[in-house]
Simulated scan of single mutants.
Amino acid sequence: MKFSIEKSVIAKAIAHASRIVEKRSTIPILANVVLRADGAELSLRTTDLDLEASLTIPADVDVAGATTVPATLLSDIVRKLAGDTVSFVMEAGGDSIMVGAGRSKFKLQCLPEHDMPDLNVGAFSHDFTMPAAHLKKLIGRTQFAISTEETRYYLNGIFMHAADELGRPVLRAVATDGHRLARVDVEQPHGASGMPGIIIPRKTVGEFDKILEAGDVTVEVSDTKIRLTAGTTVITSKLIDGTFPQYEKVIPTTNNKVAIADATAIKASTDRVATVSSERGKAVKMTFSAGNLHLFVSNPDMGNAEDDVEIDYDADDLDIGFNARYINDILNNIDSKRARIILGDAGSPAIIRDEEGDDTLFILMPMRV
């Protein structure tokens, strides 16, 4: 195998591929990246057995071939090389490869390509193409609510499924950690109807979010795996093997008190008063009254803080407590300038939506204050 490639191109590609590599893997091959040179392209592939990334970049290939080299080490070397072009030459026997640029040369030990596991085996039952912006919306507005509690592993990802919203077919993403819930809908792509409900792991969600740009993406799913193709990058991942809770049961149906307010103003006010709250609790007492939202925090060790925000509200007065960080996480994902906060009583979850549009819904559990 012999090829050369622009330094900037391979540096970006290997940095991307290296993110998948587990730094402390006990299986040597999993620390490596597959390099396959053929035609006028170089493909790179890494996996941690649960997640796989592959991408293709242009290269000047003199002799086709494939091998694997340590991913993190190669990334460090390429980043530090001088010059604009990096050359790769496999030595006789295939046990090592020379990597060089300018006067610098490195000899790296190789492992055979066939030792690298491949997650792309097996069939996918559903495939569809959708705008990258739609998938980015599904992921971007729900991933903050993914649970980090490992004992409830089935909450450690985003639940995605085909749904029907008032007679309109949608593709829906849901995430919850038990304290807040995020649900986002986009127009259902052709081919997504009847797809199984899947739970996409947190790490996979993060990788998807990093590669989504303008244009369309192709999504393929089965009961156990998902594959996303965006341009020349392909991410394949195992799914979480578990049952996502019946989230619809936690969405209140009797809340009848509606407050509409500037989301930025509430975030700023909440952040101000939470300055004196305890790091553990972050509890903020909110009093909704005609035209006004009063925020109050009391911390016996530090003092009190209070603030007011003008709102549109004409229902009965209501005192309710929320976690400051949780409510601001939700308000950060409100699309329009103003938010609709739909309340029941002090013990009922609040529904938070954009003032206009119903594609996004958030649920926030109250706190005792």
Results as ranks from 00 to 15, higher is better:
Asp95Gln: 14
Val63Leu: 13
Leu44Gly: 03
Ile334Gln: 01
Arg45Pro: 00
Ser25Ile: 06
Val309Asp: 07
Ser25Gln: 05
Arg368Ile: 07
Ile330Thr: 06
Asp312Gly: 07
Thr142Val: 09
Ser147Gln: 06
Arg325Gly: 11
Thr148Leu: 14
Glu306Ser: 15
His190Lys: 15
Thr26Gln: 12
Arg280Phe: 09
Arg227Phe: 00
Asp48Tyr: 05
Ala40Leu: 08
Glu213Met: 08
Asp38Ser: 15
Ala263Arg: 13
Pro252Ile: 00
Ala214Glu: 15
Phe88Met: 05
Val221Gly: 01
Gly215Cys: 09
Thr360Ile: 12
Ile20Asp: 03
Ala64Met: 10
Thr232Ser: 15
Lys203Phe: 08
Ile57Pro: 02
Val309Ile: 12
Gly191Gln: 04
Thr67Met: 15
Pro169Glu: 05
Ile330Arg: 03
Met365Phe: 02
Asp38Met: 13
Ile341Phe: 01
Thr275Lys: 10
Ala261Cys: 14
Ile200Gly: 03
Thr85Gly: 06
Thr224His: 09
Thr68Ala: 08
Ile97Ala: 00
Thr151Leu: 12
Gly167Thr: 04
Arg36Ile: 07
Arg280Leu: 11
Val121Leu: 11
Asp76Met: 03
Arg79Asn: 13
Ala53Pro: 01
Thr56Gly: 03
Pro245Ala: 12
Ala173Thr: 10
Ile320Val: 14
Met116Val: 07
Val284Gly: 04
Ala214Gly: 12
Lys105Phe: 10
Glu150Ile: 05
Phe124Pro: 00
His126Gln: 08
Thr233Phe: 05
Ile363Gln: 01
Gly102His: 10
